[in-house]
Design a protein around this nucleic acid. Structure first.
Lengths: 153, 153
DNA sequence: CAAGTTTTGCATGAATTGTGCATGAAAAGC
DNA sequence: GCTTTTCATGCACAATTCATGCAAAACTTG
């Protein structure tokens, strides 16, 4: 699918505010509301827009602590890749998980209530996992930027 | 603000799909549409719902490569914390940036078109920055999980 | 330059939202 | 223990918003 300047502007606006009405969108991108409706539908159909989400405030839901954890699996754990994926899937504290190239095998983005919950997660969930051989973590002190999406520009 | 089970269910549903109509929401959480409207408004007013965003498909927008970069600033750079924040702000490749406790000073979540663009970012943008003393990066091979938000459960 | 295709704005019927109002249940006060 | 107050809820309706048909404008292609 080809994207013109209107589409880019439209995506950009919708990423900032997904609840914009077509009329509001129309003002931003200088098109009629009906065109915005059509283009939006097309972008959804093409899968460029995967969907819409409410952005929730972590602090107000009691998630005060965020950490980035680098994980190495044990060498013979190669065959158990699926097991670690299942571990990730079954722990809601893990918000994002990536397999990576570099020093680490996996990087996890973890959110918990507080330091106590973090210690609990580390010592009762992650470290006892026999596949895990090494864990190094960094606790987020301050968020400078957190665009949850992708820059359409 | 106190959140009851209805609110939690509502937040959960809206995080999965922020474009749910109040009527659809009503079916999910077993309330009337008008109640969903009222509760939603209250949650927005209280800041629990910060807003809504379109989820965009990175690949279809030409962002094929994602990397997690750990950055250390030069020791005397303490005073220039604001400068690094400005650096982060002015580079759209940097999607998220956190100051962290641990080995690194900052962790960046970076998205670029391909390896070439990544090399360009590293060697032409990040490393020439005089505040930056050390950089270690991991390139994302596979995304196991990427919940952009917070579990309201 | 002409025929065909695509994009656009407008108008309209359908769907959605949000507010007033009445009801009932729980909390507070006496 | 009984009354009063408060609050959450569902229903109905007015106002807003959406999405499709249609014709004109703009852009392609041979």
């Amino acid at each position: 699918m080809k994207l013109d300047a209107f589409d880019i502007a439209l995506l950009s606006a919708l990423q900032k505010d997904g609840s914009l009405t077509n009329a509001a969108l129309a003002e931003v991108v200088n098109l009629s509301a009906s065109q915005c409706s059509r283009r939006r539908a097309a972008l959804e159909e093409a899968g460029v827009i995967e969907g819409y989400s409410a952005r929730l405030n972590a602090a107000k839901l009691g998630y005060g602590l965020r950490a980035i954890i680098r994980v190495n699996l044990s060498i013979h754990g190669q065959t158990n890749e699926g097991d670690f994926a299942r571990f990730v899937e079954s722990h809601s504290q893990i918000r994002s998980a990536f397999s990576v190239s570099g020093d680490a095998d996996y990087i996890l983005d973890v959110r918990v209530r507080d330091l106590e919950a973090f210690a609990d997660f580390m010592h009762r969930q992650l470290l006892p996992n026999p596949q895990v051989s090494q864990v190094r973590s960094e606790i987020v002190l301050k968020t400078l930027k957190d665009d949850r999406g992708i820059s359409p520009g």
